[in-house]
């Protein structure tokens, strides 16, 4: 019997409606063998958490392209903890802050907020897929 594919939650957080990257990531992750639950754009924090619980997902991939990431993304890790999925993989990427900022500072800030990986603008899907496979394998969650 074939093992179930790993489920991952995908969505663009907050009041952000940038859909292009979301559609491409969906396509690329699906092609890479993941079972993608794509919440699309304009997704509140609680919808990410609820979807992860309902589908037993192993990772949440949050995108924020419009510069409000700092406000929108804060507290998601806490909400996961409160919902009993405190150790789920949390990735975030996009144009996370307003204005040109040193990416290392942005990365540090979002890591402190509880995100496992933070991606700069322009990151290609391949990089995210490779990281995801690595992190899931380390946790023994990836079925060869």
């Amino acid at each position: 019997m074939q093992k179930d594919k790993v489920k991952i939650i995908l969505g663009v957080i907050g009041a952000d409606c940038h859909a292009v990257g979301n559609k491409i990531l969906d396509h690329a992750l699906t092609a890479a063998g993941f079972d993608v639950v794509n919440l699309g754009v304009l997704v509140p924090q609680k919808d990410f958490v609820n979807a992860a619980i309902e589908t037993d997902a192993k990772a949440i991939l949050v995108a924020s392209l419009y510069g409000h990431g700092e406000i929108d993304c804060r507290g998601l890790r806490d909400m996961c903890r409160e919902a009993g999925i405190g150790d789920i993989l949390l990735y975030v990427g996009g144009n996370l802050v307003v204005g040109k900022t040193d990416f290392a500072a942005v990365e540090a800030k979002f890591k402190e907020m509880g995100y496992d990986r933070v991606y700069a603008p322009g990151t290609l899907p391949d990089k995210v897929i490779a990281d995801l496979k690595h992190d899931l394998a380390q946790r023994g969650l990836l079925h060869g």
Binding site: G14, A15, D16, Y66, G67, H68, E70, V98, G99
Partner: peptide, 28 residues
Amino acid sequence: DSYTRQNQYKEAQHGIEESLRAGRSLLN
């Protein structure tokens, strides 16, 4: 800003206040 675009005026207000505190715009 994107909150206003979604008629989320409370969030926009919150953004104004955070921007005042941070000394830079936290709204887009």
